[in-house]
Amino acid sequence: MAFEGLSERLQGTMTKIKGKGKLSEADVKEMMREVRFALIEADVNLKVIKEFIKKVSERAVGLEVMESLTPGQQVVKIVKDELTKLMGGEQSLIEFSTRQPTVIMMVGLQGAGKTTTTGKLAGVLRKKNNRKPLLVAADVYRPAAINQLETIGKQLSLPVFSKGTEANPVDIAREAIEYAKAEHLDTVIIDTAGRLHVDEDLMQELKDIRAIKEPDEIFLVVDAMTGQDAVNVAQSFNAAIGITGVVLTKLDGDTRGGAALSIRTVTEKPIKYIGTGEKMDALEPFHPERMASRILGM
């Protein structure tokens, strides 16, 4: 019951107002209550929902009934339109630098999927953009994080730069960029350790890595199952280091993925890729429209 789609949820309300020629403010209010419920169940952030409802209500009041669509259906369409708009248009995927190498930093909470996505992204850039990536093992904290990235590198036959767990992540990143220049590797992807957005020391570490050579992309990697806290996380990372885009992972699950909307809204940064599996080929460009449908469950 809790996981029915918005369209189903709206059925009741829709039948009630089907016969009406015009939507009254009360009708719209009632429908918006249902929309709010559905979006909460989809993990869209509450504050984001408030703003959203306001916008949709403005468009919905006074809608005339059209031949083909009931007012209820029209509202659903408006909701979907606005959701899609909020999630941004199709994006250019990666900004490559004119000064070699292009530097991409992967950041985010623990367990979001940074290391896995580092591998996937490298694979995509080699295949689609003909790049020569270097993977950089800058997580010296998580047990066997380096081993994890090295294993991924081996699977993909891509070079991995590592200096063990005694080295400082900032030094590792600096030397990796030098190494890439010397070896003519044109794309450096830095896998950083998972960290909480409230961990000041570790957020400072990201700023220090960032200061070595302004990264061309800083991707915030976010688990699609994230709940209400997604906005705090995204806002904090963005405020601290200025992310350039988002990768949403684990979309092969059955979560609604409302976090996508929240993050996009509070950071105004595009979702560029989605992770759709554990294997190295499971990375896809993001399509706002599909995501809107998914959040609404239709």
Binding site: F3, E41, D43, D223, M225, G227, Q228, T255
Partner: peptide, 11 residues
């Protein structure tokens, strides 16, 4: 269960 997880934790 990860505390950052939203409603999907129920499923």
């Amino acid at each position: 269960l990860d505390a950052t997880t939203g409603q999907n934790a129920m499923v």
